[in-house]
């Protein structure tokens, strides 16, 4: 009996983003045109590929948001790191070096975010807003204000996001999708079951309590922002692979999409709540909406409106549910 109660509470929380996704898919299934074009293996391959950048960013952002912070520099860091990737390829580095160094650049930017936030007790919003401008400027400077197209493309990097192989079937999936899935599993375990993960939740629930419990709050926060930066760096590699060029003006506003995915996935902006699977599903759901709108040939503004409504509805469910319960109880 007790076990069942324990299960149901966690179950409901974990299942909410999936329900949202299910509703979206159900609505798509009602429409004949979408039914025939959307629900195809090849199309899902496309959607998954389109999810990768936001999903990888969302993994880092989930850590930050669960710990009670926010990172607005995500989009700019993705652009910066896509340029860094291009530059590294231009210099003739191999796959491993390109990947490692780009992730390192992202991580260092995150380290700067976390370091400044903790050292000067500044609001994460302000510090990362500053970093957003700095990273954007750096990427333009580094790219000489134009796109960077390596003369000799590095096939292994380009393949990460290339879904053109057998476009009509679900498999084979591009490497980037597998990488994202693997990272999602890893980060789920990290956030849910490791001591570090518990500390992230503890800091987000109540920083003072975390300090009282002997948690090194500052060190953990720096680690959280650095790790998030590393994820944005990886997303930058994916961004490069998608366009096969480094573009300093790409991913403007991406941070908001990433935050939206995390929030749709059940995270609370006041910290202490959120999950990696939820955030990834949130990213996937937004990609589904974009893809479906594309198939229906809805204009861009329709997509924007729909995604806006979805964000409000998804988060509003949390508030509406108790209200409905109260309403029905009163009715009885």
């Amino acid at each position: 009996m007790k076990l069942a109660q324990l299960g149901s509470r966690d179950f409901l929380k974990a299942v909410r983003p999936f329900v949202g996704l299910f509703v979206v898919l159900l609505l798509f299934a009602v429409d004949a045109e979408l039914r025939s074009l959307f629900f195809k293996g090849g199309n899902f391959k496309t959607i998954l590929t389109q999810t990768v950048i936001v999903a990888i960013g969302a993994m880092g952002m989930t850590l930050v948001i669960v710990s009670g912070g926010i990172d607005l520099s995500a989009g700019s860091l993705v652009a910066l790191c896509s340029v860094v990737t291009a530059k590294l390829i231009e210099h003739g580095h191999g796959f491993a070096a390109v990947l490692a160094l780009t992730v390192l650049v992202g991580g260092l930017a995150g380290l700067a975010n976390g370091g400044i936030i903790t050292a000067f007790r500044m609001m994460p919003f302000i510090v990362t807003l500053g970093m957003m401008g700095i990273a954007r400027g750096l990427s333009k400077w580094l790219a000489n204000n134009q796109t960077v197209n390596p003369d000799e493309p590095l096939e292994s990097v380009n393949r990460l996001m290339d879904n053109s192989q057998s476009p009509l079937t679900f498999f084979p999936l591009p490497d980037g999708v597998w990488l994202a899935l693997g990272l999602a599993v890893l980060m789920t375990v990290v956030l849910r079951s490791t001591v570090f993960g518990r500390y992230v939740f503890a800091i987000g629930s109540n920083e003072d309590t975390a300090r009282l419990c002997g948690i090194r709050v500052n060190a953990n926060k720096i680690a959280i922002y650095a790790l998030a930066g590393a994820f944005f760096g990886l997303a930058g590699v994916m961004q490069f692979s998608r366009l096969t060029q480094g573009d300093p003006s790409v991913a403007i506003g991406l941070e908001l999409q990433i935050i939206a995915a995390v929030v749709i996935g059940g995270a609370s902006l006041s910290g202490g709540a959120g999950s990696i699977p939820g955030s990834v599903i949130g990213a996937f759901m937004m990609a589904c909406l974009a893809n479906g709108s594309g198939i229906k040939d809805w204009p861009n503004y329709m997509q924007e409106i729909i995604i806006g409504v979805v964000i409000i509805v998804a988060v509003g469910m949390d508030k509406v549910e108790p209200m409905l319960q109260r309403f029905f109880r009163r009715g009885k």
Partner: peptide, 16 residues
């Protein structure tokens, strides 16, 4: 305000 993580479980609070 300081003693407990109100949103977290009893288990997490006891063993943090």
């Amino acid at each position: 305000e300081e003693g407990l993580l109100l949103g977290r479980s009893i288990a997490d609070n006891l063993t943090m």
